[in-house]
């Protein structure tokens, strides 16, 4: 649609397609043509290419416009699309900071260093046990904001729903971080069950984080959970077995904690049913 009512004369369009306009005039005309269907229609005759009509040019223009305007999604999201992730879901996930290449590559580097530390010298696996459960937890904390934050306000009032959006991003973070951490875990020295035992606290801390975040926001909740877990792991290095935080008895406690957190979320959902923003 043209906003000025002016249309480029055929002679001007011919000079443009022949490349005879100076840079400023060409840029100005391009700006007009990009918004004026009438003048775009005048480009095809000016090009004088056999078989190219206005419809074909319009189709080409649509493709160009799609490529230019539609934003490029993060690499991880594009890879996920190749294995079947739907485009609308990909767009929603792409807004989460912790699903972007920078965050994810940082997480892999930290996990890598923790794994290397464990394989060197005196078999210290506590850095891995400290980091591995926290990566997905902090990823979830970074994946969404408080319901009162300006950007998040739109999700609250949209039909998609904030709770659904938060859970979608949580799932996205788990899928993108847990397999990498688990694979690195198999490189650890010592008992092989440790490679997966950290999943217990990780999968407990995520619902705990979500439940806490519904009261104090995800950033503060992430800090609280990270501090508590760090304290537990570091305390175990002084006197107890390094694997104490992921031992079987502790796993039962984690399961109980997860159940409590899920119950809190369920109660919140009931209390906030009128706006549907439990998280």
């Amino acid at each position: 649609m043209s906003t000025t009512g002016w249309h480029a004369p055929p002679a001007l369009l011919r000079r443009y397609t022949a490349g005879d306009l100076d840079a400023v005039a060409a840029a100005s005309l391009e700006r007009h043509v990009s918004r004026c269907a009438d003048c775009r229609g005048g480009i095809a005759p000016a090009l004088d290419i056999p078989g190219l009509d206005a419809r074909g040019l319009d189709a080409a223009w649509s493709v160009v416009r799609e490529r230019v305007e539609a934003p490029r999604l993060p690499l991880v999201i594009r890879l996920a699309q190749r294995v079947g992730l739907r485009e609308p879901t990909a767009i929603l996930l792409s807004a989460a900071a912790s699903l972007r290449a920078a965050w994810l590559s940082g997480a892999v580097v930290v996990l890598g260093f923790a794994t290397i530390a464990a394989t060197l010298g005196d078999q210290r696996i506590w850095p891995y046990l400290l980091v591995a459960p926290l990566i997905p937890v902090l990823g979830v904390a970074a994946a969404y904001g408080d319901a009162d934050e300006p950007f998040e306000a739109l999700a609250v009032t949209a039909p998609y729903g904030r709770t659904r959006l938060v859970l979608l991003r949580t799932l996205g973070v788990i899928v993108s971080t847990v397999p990498v951490a688990a694979l690195l875990g198999f490189l650890l020295p010592g008992p092989s069950w440790v490679a997966l035992a950290w999943l217990g606290p990780a999968l407990t801390m995520i619902p705990v984080l979500l439940a806490l975040a519904s009261f104090i926001g995800p950033r503060t909740a992430g800090a609280v959970v990270a501090l508590v877990w760090s304290g537990l792991v570091l305390a175990a290095t002084r006197g107890a077995e390094q694997t104490w935080p992921v031992a079987a008895t502790q796993q039962a406690v984690y399961a109980g904690l997860a159940a409590v957190a899920l119950a809190v979320i369920a109660v919140r959902a009931r209390l906030t049913h009128q706006i549907g923003a439990a998280l």
Binding site: E69, L92, A95, P150, A153, A158, P159
Partner: peptide, 30 residues
């Protein structure tokens, strides 16, 4: 329903088209 809050946060690296498209997906324009 359409809603413009008093303050609206915009992720800095989003383009105009990208932001509005993001909200369009939230509004189920699949």
């Amino acid at each position: 329903l359409g809603y413009l809050p008093q303050e609206l946060g915009y992720p800095g690296d989003m383009s105009v088209f990208g932001f509005v498209e993001y909200v369009a997906v939230l509004k189920e324009w699949d």
